[in-house]
């Protein structure tokens, strides 16, 4: 512990140093996740309630005809599974980002931001950590769903869905991160549910095929088409069947770039919003 550890300082920030930093952030997020069993349980129970109760109830009411990527008639449970997976990621993305700013985690954010690594890299590390946690949640859900006979047509689907999950996790996490700096007024998670999660989830292809929405209402159909969440759902849906939905892939990539750009901008010390409002602890 000498003062003159200037050599250890990342003046010449090495690739190894970046990797250590990234892994450190992921490691911590994983540890926290393991300690918060309640969070894991609710992340798992929420989609299962939809799967076991909601979908079972609607199975008879809502017939799903054969639409790609499905080649046979499918149960409604099978149809909504990708939507529920995206929902897990949506919750996770918003929760991990918003909690960072709203509650006691204010301090944790400060600790992250005094790291000498570039701000954008720290934010990306945070995103990667969030994705890692969301993957745990999603695969736990898929495991339970497997025993409920909700499975892709080919077990390889569990593998092909992985890249899609990484991309959608990135997009939804970046969205949460951008929001965490912009909407300071959304003090609690309930209002985030009302104003972000529910509209995004319901105005999407998560619960009903879009052609059915189109029959009901053209404007709603248009909204669904423009909803990035729809494209997250469709990307996952096709990936589970070993296929790529190119439109959705493009939308997810573009939205990821935009959301990440907004987050980096918002947290940038020179142009960002924290300085104008007095930062995360301005409320004090």
């Amino acid at each position: 512990m000498s003062v003159t550890t200037g050599s250890a300082a990342p003046g010449g920030v090495s690739a190894r140093g970046y990797l250590i930093c990234l892994l450190g952030v992921v490691w911590r997020e994983g540890l926290r996740f393991l300690h918060q069993r309640g969070r894991f349980l609710s992340a798992l129970v929420r989609p299962l309630v939809w799967l076991f109760i909601f979908a079972a109830g609607f199975r008879a009411t809502l017939g799903v005809s054969i639409i790609p990527p499905y080649e046979t008639y499918i149960l409604y449970e099978v149809y909504i599974a990708p939507g529920l997976i995206a929902m897990i990621q949506l919750f996770n993305g918003l929760q991990s980002s918003l909690s960072m700013v709203y509650d006691r985690e204010v301090g944790a954010m400060r600790i992250l931001l005094v790291s000498p690594y570039p701000r954008w890299f720290l934010l990306v590390s945070k995103l990667v950590a969030g994705i890692a946690v969301s993957l745990l949640q999603v695969y736990a859900f898929l495991l339970v769903a497997y025993f409920w006979d909700v499975q892709p047509d080919n077990p390889i689907g569990y593998l092909t869905v992985l890249p899609a999950l990484v991309l959608t996790g990135f997009m939804l996490g970046a969205m949460g991160l951008a929001m965490s700096s912009v909407f300071k007024q959304l003090e609690n998670f309930a209002s985030v549910m009302n104003f972000v999660i529910f509209p995004m989830f319901f105005a999407s292809s998560a619960l009903y095929p879009l052609w059915r929405v189109q029959q009901a209402s053209e404007p709603l159909y248009a909204i669904c088409r423009f909803n990035p969440f729809t494209h997250a759902v469709e990307l996952i849906r096709f990936a589970l069947y070993g296929q790529v939905e190119w439109t959705s892939l493009t939308v997810v990539l573009c939205c990821s770039a935009v959301f990440l750009g907004a987050a980096v901008f918002a947290y940038d010390p020179s142009v960002g919003l924290t300085g104008r409002r007095g930062g995360p602890d301005a409320a004090r």
Partner: peptide
Amino acid sequence: SRTLDLELSVMQNLLYHAALHGI
């Protein structure tokens, strides 16, 4: 404000910080 992770151990908190500095 307090900035330690209450659920993690003292050592884990310190190792996290070290990682943020590339150690």
